Amino acid sequence: MMRLLLLLSLLALAAPLNARDSLGVFGEWGAFRDPDTPRCYAIAEAQESRARRDYQPYSSVGNWPARNLRSQVHFKLSRHLSDTPRVRLAIGAARFNLVAGAGDAWAVDAATDTAIVAAMRAAGRMSISAIDNRGNRFTDRYSLDGAATAIDAAGVGCTRSRQAR
């Protein structure tokens, strides 16, 4: 919870620059609306770790109404990835292969986004593992406490911003 409050504090300080509106904090997850883009998203930091980190890892589920995109998952991973990172997401008994860039990962398609979000709603934790640019496998772990409510708040936040226009 403290990590999320720190993340929210940092986002609040940057709010005038990035015009983000807080939609609420729910367990370990927060929900935000960025009316300039426009987009709404639920976001959480990975659990603390003593392992080496090149980036501050986070997970998000976003909506872009103007592009008709809903519940698109994105992961900022904690390390620079290898050219063949084999990124794997585990949520309860469900497993998903993801596509990746230098330090990011996404679902392979919209159907997988939907399946990942459904699994997130039903589980308490998730982890994402990959191979870093040094050839080592690493894992980022997340609590899903509050994820479903934050995802719902982000969806409602973008619906409301569309209706206000």
Results as ranks from 00 to 15, higher is better:
133 N>M: 11
1 M>L: 03
64 W>G: 08
137 R>L: 02
136 N>C: 09
66 A>I: 15
11 L>P: 10
129 S>K: 12
30 G>L: 09
117 V>L: 00
105 A>G: 03
160 R>L: 10
93 A>C: 07
137 R>G: 04
10 L>A: 09
121 R>D: 05
45 E>T: 01
60 S>E: 15
81 L>S: 00
129 S>Q: 12
118 A>I: 13
69 L>S: 11
75 F>H: 05
86 R>F: 06
76 K>I: 10
159 T>R: 13
134 R>M: 05
123 A>M: 03
111 A>C: 04
132 D>C: 04
109 D>E: 12
63 N>F: 05
106 W>M: 00
107 A>H: 06
66 A>L: 15
52 R>I: 03
130 A>N: 13
161 S>N: 07
104 D>P: 00
20 R>G: 05
60 S>G: 12
125 R>H: 13
23 L>I: 04
52 R>G: 02
64 W>Y: 15
29 W>G: 07
41 Y>K: 13
106 W>A: 00
162 R>G: 10
1 M>P: 04
151 I>S: 03
101 G>P: 01
57 P>H: 02
98 L>I: 02
34 D>K: 10
25 V>E: 15
127 S>V: 07
110 A>Y: 06
147 A>M: 08
5 L>P: 06
83 D>W: 00
147 A>E: 12
41 Y>P: 14
153 A>M: 06
111 A>D: 14
133 N>C: 11
67 R>Y: 14
38 P>C: 07
154 A>I: 15
77 L>N: 05
16 P>E: 03
156 V>S: 11
124 G>C: 13
55 Y>V: 04
38 P>A: 04
95 R>D: 11
6 L>S: 09
132 D>M: 02
3 R>F: 12
91 I>D: 11
135 G>N: 07
92 G>Q: 10
141 R>G: 13
89 L>C: 00
101 G>H: 05
45 E>C: 00
144 L>S: 08
85 P>E: 10
123 A>T: 04
126 M>V: 01
106 W>D: 00
38 P>R: 05
128 I>H: 07
53 R>S: 03
83 D>P: 00
81 L>P: 01
90 A>K: 09
46 A>E: 00
45 E>L: 03
118 A>P: 07
116 I>H: 04
114 T>S: 08
97 N>T: 11
3 R>C: 06
154 A>S: 15
100 A>Y: 12
118 A>L: 10
24 G>H: 02
149 T>D: 15
45 E>G: 02
158 C>S: 09
